[in-house]
Design a protein around this nucleic acid. Structure first.
Length: 369
DNA sequence: TATATATTTCCTGATT
DNA sequence: TAATCAGGAAATATAT
């Protein structure tokens, strides 16, 4: 839990520094410059938001994790009204909590306080948190999830054992995915850093399929960290035989719900791969070490830690078997569509093409105004 | 429901 | 030799 709070703080800090403090109402609303017009539209069309009427609710447009106590109350009132629930049966003295606390409530706790409305609130909360489109929310989510999974995993182990120490140490090293987010002034990563993006779902170290390897992200045995119920295929694994071509089938709805817990029915489809890449490049403070611009004006960029980026992409797509080799295949398809241009003779280097957008400095600056 | 689009996966061969 | 690139083929997921 401490890790969760720290992570939230880190990103809260990020948000508050990223957006003008003079405009608190906008503080948590991603700008088009940051997340792209598409994402902005998603935000505005979020069905969970009470957009009708001239006044937007105070909590609207803000991630539940960052709601204040007043905003939590506001949201509860909204839900009570929306569901035409008898508010007299609610013990409002127990509603004195901020968004982070609310998000940490189990459905039983909510049921205890809100009665039958508790389930509805829990479900709405899930929808809200998971439908948030900004590109950081999924990182936050995955950091928090990994953090808990990691702690649960370590639980039964002797924390002082060389094994767990080693895992922790490796985790710390790999957490430099986003060293900027833990930069000076930011809270020490402490326990949270071991759970950093990409850690939990790294591919099998035995996979010969992996193309790259600037950094081996595999912190642990995949069995320890397998998540989401994704089949952990291994190329040439005699147990499983040769895998069929193509994208693996999704698990059945039931299996997924069982493995993931209750989640939004409409997980945001989110960005395309090239947009994901672009967004990483546009946030050097968060992606330090993952990718870099070779020539910003020309749109030329380079993967510094190809496998790490692939893992992050896999996390975003909830696919823990993503590798740089596969990601690069998808990137190569962009050549035909002129979203990317070839950069001959240079490994791990790509260039944005004429059908890509939102990466030019003028565009970024323009849409920020 | 059918179709188009966007990947994802596997593969072989070439290049660095 | 390993990593990466290139691109064909086939498969699935999702949007329309």
């Amino acid at each position: 839990m401490a890790a969760t709070c720290e992570i939230s703080n880190v990103f809260s800090n990020y948000f508050s520094t990223m957006y003008s403090p003079e405009e608190p109402a906008l503080a948590s609303v991603p700008t088009a410059a940051t997340f792209g017009a598409e994402d902005l539209v998603l935000t505005l069309s979020n069905p969970q938001m009470p957009l009708e009427g001239p006044e937007k609710a105070s909590w609207s447009g803000k991630q539940p994790q960052f709601w204040s106590k007043a905003q939590v109350l506001d949201w509860i009132s909204y839900q009570v009204e929306k569901n035409k629930y008898d508010a007299s049966s609610i013990d409002f003295s127990r509603c004195d909590m901020d968004g982070a606390t609310l998000c940490n409530c189990a459905p039983e706790e909510l049921r205890l306080v809100f009665g039958p409305l508790g389930d509805q609130l829990y479900s709405q909360l899930w929808d809200l948190t998971s439908s948030f489109p900004d590109e950081l929310s999924w990182i936050i989510e995955l950091l928090e999830k990994d953090s808990m999974a990691f702690q649960e995993t370590l639980g039964p182990f002797d924390q002082g054992s060389p094994f767990s120490q080693e895992v922790l140490e490796e985790g710390r090293q790999a957490s430099s995915y986003f060293p900027g987010s833990y930069g000076t002034g930011a809270p020490s990563p402490g326990s949270s850093d071991v759970s950093t993006a990409g850690t939990g779902t790294s591919q099998s170290p035995h996979s010969s399929d992996s193309g790259g390897s600037d950094v081996d992200l595999d912190l642990t045995d995949s069995k320890l960290f397998s998540r989401d119920g994704f089949p952990d295929y291994k190329k040439g694994d005699p147990k499983h035989g040769k895998r069929k071509r193509g994208r693996p089938r999704k698990l059945s709805k039931e299996s997924r719900e069982c493995l993931e817990g209750k989640r939004s029915k409409h997980a945001p489809r989110g960005t395309h791969l090239w947009e994901f890449i672009r967004d990483i490049l546009l946030h050097p403070e968060l992606n330090e070490g993952l990718m870099k611009w070779e020539n910003r004006q020309e749109g030329v960029f380079k993967f510094l830690r190809s496998e790490a980026v692939a893992q992050l992409w896999g996390q975003k797509k909830r696919n823990n078997s993503m590798t740089y080799e596969k990601l690069s295949r998808a990137m190569r398809y962009y050549y035909k569509r002129e979203i990317l241009e070839r950069v001959d003779g240079r490994r791990l280097v790509y260039k944005f093409g004429k059908n890509s957008s939102g990466w030019k400095e003028e565009e970024v600056a323009g849409s920020r105004n």
